[in-house]
Amino acid sequence: MCVDCGCGKSVPFGVKVLSVLAPGLLRSSAPAPASAAAVDAGVMTVVPAPLTPLTVQVHTSLLAKNDDAAGRNRAQFVQRGMLALNLVSSPGAGKTTLLSRTVDEFGREHRCAVVVGDLETDNDARRLHRPHVPVAQITTGSACHLDADMVARGVGALDLTGVRVMFIENVGNLVCPASFDLGEAVRVVLLSATEGEDKPLKYPPIFKSAHVVLLTKIDVAEVLGFDCRAAIENIRRVAPQATLIPLSSRSGEGMAVWYDYLRQRLLPR
C-alpha cells in the first residue's frame, strides 16, 4: 500500500505495513517521525513515515516529438525549394478530386508531388497517379491523422527531382489533424457544400489554424439548398486570418484563383 495517498499500490520498499492509518493522517504535511507507533485494535503496529511527496515542475509539450519531426520536414521542404501544403477536411469534402484536377492543370506548369493518407486502401493514390506526378500513399491503420514522421517516410519514398509543390492530403477528419504540424508552409482546410454552413463554428481549432479555406463543390450548392453566403460569413468570422476561395473541382469555377494562390506562394528557385 502506498503510504502517501492510500491508492492501494504496493510500494517496493522494505517496511511491512501492518495497519492502515486514515488517509488524512498519512497526507499530513507535518514532518513525521521516522517510525510511528500506532495502536490498532490493541495491537502495536509499526507504520513507516510518509514519504515527502516530490513535486516536479516541467513545461514539456506533449507534441514535442511530432513538432521536432515537423521541423525537420519543414527544413527539408525549404531547402529543396518546395511549397508544402497540408489539406484537411471532413471525409469526402473533395480533397482527392481537387488534387487530381490541380495536378492535371497546375501540375503541367509546375511539378507537383502528393503524399496521401488514409486509414486503409491506396485508392486515393491510384486516383492521383499520373506519369508526371510522384504519389505516395500512407495507410495509417487506426490513426485518425497524419503525423510528421509518417509524412517524412512518404516524402522519402518519392523522386523529388524538380518538384516545386508537395501536397499532403490528410486523413478525412476535422479534429485530430489540428494538433499535428506536418512541416507544411500552408494549411488548407476544405468545407464542402454537402456539409453544414455552421461547421466552422463547430470546429474552431482547425479553421483557426488554416491559411486557406476552400469552400468546395459549389456547383451543387444551389440544388442542395446550401447557403454559400452564410457559409462564407461563418468562415470569415471564425477564420479571419485565412484566404477564402470558393471553388468547384467539377465545373472548374474558382480553380484559377486557387492556382494563382499557389503561384504566389511558390518558393524562389
Binding site: 502506498c2 516536479v56 515542475q57 513545461h59 506533449l62 477564420a239 479571419p240 486570418q241
Partner: peptide, 20 residues
C-alpha cells in the same frame, strides 16, 4: 475587428508531477 492571431490557447503541455 475580427481577429485571427492566436497568442496563446494552443498549449498542450505536461506541467507538474507529484510523486513519492
Amino acid at each position: 475587428d475580427l481577429c485571427g492571431e492566436i497568442r496563446s490557447g494552443r498549449e498542450l503541455e505536461l506541467s507538474r508531477i507529484e510523486m513519492s
